[in-house]
Amino acid sequence: MEVRTIKVFTTVDNINLHTQVVDMSMTYGQQFGPTYLDGADVTKIKPHNSHEGKTFYVLPNDDTLRVEAFEYYHTTDPSFLGRYMSALNHTKKWKYPQVNGLTSIKWADNNCYLATALLTLQQIELKFNPPALQDAYYRARAGEAANFCALILAYCNKTVGELGDVRETMSYLFQHANLDSCKRVLNVVCKTCGQQQTTLKGVEAVMYMGTLSYEQFKKGVQIPCTCGKQATKYLVQQESPFVMMSAPPAQYELKHGTFTCASEYTGNYQCGHYKHITSKETLYCIDGALLTKSSEYKGPITDVFYKENSYTTTIK
């Protein structure tokens, strides 16, 4: 009895394709271990004539594949690729409408935090270190965002349907971005203890939790000093293409032309909904596939993004 075979390709990165001759009487799992086709788990399936010449994702289970996976995804987590594939199996079914010149995501599976993050990423200057993220990001900007969303979920250790947080998501993504040249110098002034300067680099240099107003941050924000008295913390120097200011959701007025974009969060910790506000020729609110415009805006804002380049204080 002759062994019926077909020729397929296996890959971990969709760049390096490895030619395989597979036995049609055995499952993919018996031949390769966990195997995925377009995100779908085909591990328990036997090869079919229609699979001839198709590319299958496999887990990096030998040295060659491990090197290829690390170079593309910059992670050695053995569960990463499987999590990416199972997320992709959902995100490829989502709709990605162009809204006001940006790629958004039609609401499904509690994905409003991903839509808000995706919209924000198209408006701030950011370059990702893992080629996987950078490639998928370019495709997302062009309207094909399924891979990018699935990668975000995998890097953030999230599953489809789980509630997510924009600030946490951005923080994970910033860790995989090139923020080497970003720098922030802060000064804390206390009447009792004097003053202390701190220099922050990388992710810490672009994120701040405690106030939404970048102007206020430049002037000074009140913080408790270690001595128990009130101290003032203010920005001395900022070198970065953008800054992200966050605070627990509270009524906040966004003035046209003073910011790049913002995240609105309605609801409580267990259950809520994100919308995205962007400042173009007027203010726009993007909620999944829905767009509304207004000249002014007041609502429960939790993150505001500002364009920056270089700032030095005039406070002496």
Rank of each mutant, 00 (worst) to 15 (best):
T5A: 14
I6N: 06
T10L: 13
T11A: 06
V12G: 07
D13N: 09
H18W: 06
T19G: 12
M26F: 08
M26K: 12
T27P: 10
T27W: 06
Y28F: 15
T35Y: 04
T35M: 15
L37G: 08
D38C: 10
G39M: 09
K46Q: 13
N49E: 13
G53T: 11
K54V: 11
T55H: 11
Y57I: 11
V58W: 06
V58P: 05
L59K: 13
N61F: 14
L65D: 07
R66E: 11
A69T: 10
Y72A: 12
T76N: 08
P78C: 10
S79W: 08
R83D: 05
A87G: 06
N89I: 07
W94N: 03
P97G: 06
Q98F: 08
L102H: 07
I105H: 05
N110Y: 02
N111D: 00
T116H: 06
A117W: 01
L119S: 04
Q122T: 05
Q123L: 05
E125K: 11
E125Y: 06
L126V: 13
N129F: 05
Q134V: 11
A136Y: 09
Y137P: 02
Y138R: 14
R139G: 10
R139W: 10
R141D: 04
G143N: 05
A146E: 09
I152A: 14
K158P: 01
V160H: 01
G164N: 02
V166Q: 04
E168L: 10
L173M: 15
H176M: 11
L186E: 15
L186W: 13
C190K: 01
T192H: 10
C193M: 04
Q195Y: 11
Q197H: 07
T198R: 13
T199C: 12
T199S: 10
G202K: 02
M207Q: 08
G210R: 02
G210F: 05
G210T: 02
G210I: 03
T211P: 02
S213W: 00
Q216V: 08
K218F: 03
K218Y: 04
K218N: 00
K218W: 07
V221P: 02
P224D: 11
K229A: 12
Q230G: 07
K233Y: 06
L235C: 07
Q237D: 08
E239P: 02
E239G: 03
P241T: 09
F242G: 04
M245D: 00
A250K: 10
Q251S: 12
A262D: 01
A262R: 00
E264A: 11
Y265G: 05
T266H: 08
N268Y: 15
N268E: 11
Y269I: 13
G272Q: 03
K275A: 10
H276F: 15
T282I: 09
L291I: 13
S294P: 11
G299I: 01
P300E: 10
I301K: 00
T302W: 00
Y306V: 02
Y306N: 02
K307Q: 15
